[in-house]
Amino acid sequence: MSKISVNGKAQEVERPISITELIKLNNVAQPEMVSIQLNGQFVNRDDFDNTQVAEGDELDFLYFMGGGSF
Protein backbone atom coordinates (compact mmCIF):
# COMPACT_ATOMS: atom_id res chain seq x y z
CA MET A 1 0.00 0.00 0.00
CA SER A 2 1.40 3.40 -1.02
CA LYS A 3 0.12 6.72 0.18
CA ILE A 4 0.13 9.43 -2.47
CA SER A 5 -1.69 12.69 -2.96
CA VAL A 6 -3.75 13.72 -5.96
CA ASN A 7 -4.74 17.38 -6.23
CA GLY A 8 -3.96 17.86 -2.56
CA LYS A 9 -6.09 14.91 -1.40
CA ALA A 10 -4.64 11.75 0.11
CA GLN A 11 -5.07 8.55 -1.89
CA GLU A 12 -3.87 5.00 -1.40
CA VAL A 13 -2.77 2.69 -4.14
CA GLU A 14 -2.43 -1.04 -3.51
CA ARG A 15 0.61 -1.64 -5.68
CA PRO A 16 3.02 0.41 -7.75
CA ILE A 17 1.07 1.76 -10.69
CA SER A 18 1.77 3.90 -13.71
CA ILE A 19 0.36 7.37 -14.27
CA THR A 20 -1.87 5.95 -17.00
CA GLU A 21 -3.36 3.51 -14.49
CA LEU A 22 -3.74 6.24 -11.88
CA ILE A 23 -5.65 8.39 -14.38
CA LYS A 24 -7.97 5.44 -15.00
CA LEU A 25 -8.35 4.84 -11.26
CA ASN A 26 -9.44 8.45 -10.79
CA ASN A 27 -12.09 8.16 -13.50
CA VAL A 28 -10.78 11.13 -15.46
CA ALA A 29 -13.42 11.83 -18.09
CA GLN A 30 -11.00 12.72 -20.90
CA PRO A 31 -7.66 11.12 -20.04
CA GLU A 32 -6.10 12.40 -23.25
CA MET A 33 -6.85 15.98 -22.13
CA VAL A 34 -5.32 16.01 -18.64
CA SER A 35 -1.92 17.50 -17.83
CA ILE A 36 -0.03 15.79 -15.03
CA GLN A 37 2.48 17.23 -12.63
CA LEU A 38 4.45 14.76 -10.51
CA ASN A 39 6.18 16.33 -7.50
CA GLY A 40 6.16 19.70 -9.22
CA GLN A 41 7.48 18.47 -12.58
CA PHE A 42 5.39 18.09 -15.70
CA VAL A 43 5.34 14.59 -17.11
CA ASN A 44 5.37 14.21 -20.88
CA ARG A 45 2.27 12.46 -22.16
CA ASP A 46 4.49 9.87 -23.83
CA ASP A 47 5.88 8.93 -20.42
CA PHE A 48 2.52 8.34 -18.69
CA ASP A 49 2.74 4.58 -19.31
CA ASN A 50 6.26 4.11 -18.01
CA THR A 51 6.24 6.54 -15.08
CA GLN A 52 5.51 4.76 -11.82
CA VAL A 53 3.85 6.40 -8.86
CA ALA A 54 5.52 5.70 -5.52
CA GLU A 55 4.90 6.28 -1.81
CA GLY A 56 4.78 9.96 -0.93
CA ASP A 57 4.37 11.21 -4.50
CA GLU A 58 2.32 14.33 -5.02
CA LEU A 59 0.39 14.54 -8.25
CA ASP A 60 -1.61 17.35 -9.78
CA PHE A 61 -4.16 16.74 -12.49
CA LEU A 62 -4.72 19.90 -14.53
CA TYR A 63 -7.69 20.27 -16.83
CA PHE A 64 -8.39 22.54 -19.76
CA MET A 65 -10.80 25.33 -19.02
CA GLY A 66 -12.28 27.69 -21.58
CA GLY A 67 -13.47 31.14 -20.69
CA GLY A 68 -16.22 33.60 -20.91
CA SER A 69 -16.14 35.54 -24.12
CA PHE A 70 -19.25 34.40 -25.94
Binding site: Q30, L62, G66
Partner: peptide, 13 residues
Protein backbone atom coordinates in the same frame (compact mmCIF):
# COMPACT_ATOMS: atom_id res chain seq x y z
CA UNK B 1 -0.94 22.68 -21.29
CA UNK B 2 1.31 21.61 -24.10
CA UNK B 3 -0.96 22.22 -27.09
CA UNK B 4 -4.57 23.08 -27.84
CA UNK B 5 -7.12 20.31 -27.38
CA UNK B 6 -8.64 19.04 -30.62
CA UNK B 7 -11.70 21.10 -31.63
CA UNK B 8 -14.76 19.98 -29.67
CA UNK B 9 -12.73 17.77 -27.31
CA UNK B 10 -13.23 20.15 -24.42
CA UNK B 11 -16.54 21.94 -24.10
CA UNK B 12 -16.56 25.73 -23.92
CA UNK B 13 -19.00 27.74 -21.84
Amino acid sequence: FHSPPPPNAVPTC
